[in-house]
Amino acid sequence: MAKTVVLQRKPLSLSERTYLPQIVTGLKTTFSNMFKEKVTLQYPEEKPNIPKNYRGVPTLVKDPNGREKCVSCQLCEFVCPPKAIRITPGSVPEDEVDREHVEKATQEFEINMLRCIYCGYCQEVCPEEAIFLQDEYSSSGYTREEMINNKEKLYELGGTLPDQHYKWDKKKVAEGEGNAH
């Protein structure tokens, strides 16, 4: 059983009742604080450290061969809670030989950054690992139109990320050997 302890409060001594010694202690504390290191980050000149797994602006990435990975499956468009993504599907251009076996590609891919809530669902749902929320944290513009990132901008922001699977290469090889799927 818990025991109740009644705290004995000592009556304050005279010096304590003047508050003055306590005030002096407080003054000492604030004074020594003046010479401590400052914690301010001088923002535009100094950038904050972005930790790994930071969820910044969503971007589209290419694989190390420079091919667009997105296959326009539109899962991200579907899953996006605030409906920030709009995809116009298209076909893979004829001249891209090593991607011709992929059925679809995007004609246009827009993410409206005024709607995006940086939830990361699009990155999670993407079967192609084509969309990533990377370390870009400051997006600004003068008009609403500027805040809509189009395909070109998205690939520019995304750049190239290492690929663990080369899914489509494997598929092509398997097809060649006659055991697709």
């Binding site: 604030t30 004074f31 604080n33 003046m34 010479f35 401590k36 290191e37 400052k38 914690v39 301010t40 001088q42």
Partner: peptide, 10 residues
């Protein structure tokens, strides 16, 4: 300034 210094700001 002084308040900033005392609070670890600039």
């Amino acid at each position: 300034k002084v308040s900033a210094w005392m609070q670890g700001r600039v």
